[in-house]
Simulated assay, not measured.
Amino acid sequence: MPMNIIIQEKRKEIGLTQEQIGEYLGVSTPAVNKWEKGYTYPDISLLPALARLLKVDLNTLLCFNEGLTEQEIGHFINEVGATISKNGFEAGFTMSMGKIREYPNCDMLINSIALLLDGALLMYGSNIDDKEPYKKQITALYERVAKSDNDQIRDKAIYMLASKHLACMEYEKAQEMLDLLPERTALDKTQLQASLFIKQNKLDEAAMLLERKLLNVVTEVEMILMSLAEIEIKEGDSKNSSYLAELSQKVTNLFELGDMNALATPLHIAILQKNVEDSISLLKSYFLATFTPWDLSKSSLYRHIAVKLKIAKIVKEEVVKEKQENLGKQVPLTLISELENSPEYMFLHSNAEFQQLIEEYRTKF
């Protein structure tokens, strides 16, 4: 919020006129009027007295603690996403860093941008020769937010840093980050809040809360099963690993998370096992699944979330449609790039059926 708006709003909050402000500070009423319209600014010597008069601290008056609302941040994130989709990652990155310079103390904004850029670099960064400078700057954003006074934002940033250190095999640093995270509380606020909403007959609010909780829990179960299956491989029990991968697929299908999610664990395990036949078969299914994105509106478990998304889609029909089309193209393109360049898929490169599959989908997209 600009200084002129702060002066105007705070003056009205305490019930003073522009004339009274001028009298207290020894300036004319037109001068105060110009401050509030943003034509001029108070002399620096007047700032401490003006802050005391308006009952704010200097940081607030000078906009040092200026932030954005959650809605404003969401709108900006959508704009950056559209820019990246249309003009490339570099354009969205430049746009994002400019916004951070404008709001350097808004932790929610910085964290949201870091998460967006992190995902976008993976999805849209296949044409960037050197990704390391971008990766370092994104990590630096997480490190800034990891010092936030907001517990939720700080913990999310620390979690992402731990994940990055783990991916880079920096195990000591990863442990340092994990040690900073609180253990999950045994008291579940979500269930209690939902019960309260039901008692108050706020059924939509209760359903939305519980559906989001269900999504989080099922996703966590899927990740746990994937990790357990990976452990079985490392311990030499290929049979049990395959069983856990199948179980993960059943759970995902049971809780209606879509074909792509259902195939994720079996594909991951087949790759780790270097099982050429299963890997190629699952890759074919995974590519086909990208043509039919997960549709919440067809699920009976998440219908309240779907209704909310449908309303948002009506409001921004063309934007949503364009994003879905771009995402539908980008997912397989990113997968193709990963299959061709990542060392973990090298065992497939000499297989003619694999090469044919890659060529087929590269031509399509």
Rank of each mutant, 00 (worst) to 15 (best):
H304C: 02
P104W: 05
P42K: 05
N4H: 15
F76V: 02
L47T: 02
L115Q: 11
D57Y: 03
S238K: 15
L257Q: 04
L121Y: 00
E340M: 13
L333W: 01
R11K: 12
N87L: 14
L288K: 15
S279C: 11
M223P: 04
V56P: 07
V217R: 03
S297T: 09
D295W: 08
A49D: 14
P343M: 04
L272C: 13
L267P: 05
L339Q: 07
M160W: 02
L25R: 06
N275V: 06
S281N: 12
S238V: 08
N240E: 12
L68H: 08
D151P: 03
E102C: 08
L348W: 00
K10N: 11
N326V: 13
K274P: 03
E232M: 09
P30Y: 05
E132M: 13
K156S: 10
K316G: 05
L50N: 00
N111C: 04
M1I: 13
K250I: 03
T292P: 04
E338M: 14
L61Y: 01
L309W: 00
Q20P: 04
P133Q: 11
M123Q: 10
Q18S: 14
S248D: 04
K99Y: 06
L215F: 09
E359S: 14
K34Q: 14
F365G: 06
I44N: 13
S241I: 00
L247V: 10
G119W: 11
S163M: 09
T363Y: 12
K329D: 08
S148L: 05
A114I: 02
K274H: 14
I7Y: 03
Q152F: 06
E19Y: 07
E170K: 12
E220D: 15
D118L: 05
F365W: 04
G67K: 14
I44F: 04
R154H: 04
D57N: 14
C63D: 11
K308E: 05
K239M: 09
S248E: 03
L228H: 11
E19H: 09
I314E: 15
V217A: 13
M160V: 07
E222I: 09
K199W: 08
C168F: 05
M108N: 12
Y24E: 12
G38E: 11
L225M: 13
E9R: 14
A262E: 01
A162Q: 09
L117A: 07
G15Y: 14
K55M: 11
L68S: 09
E9N: 12
Y302F: 11
G328W: 00
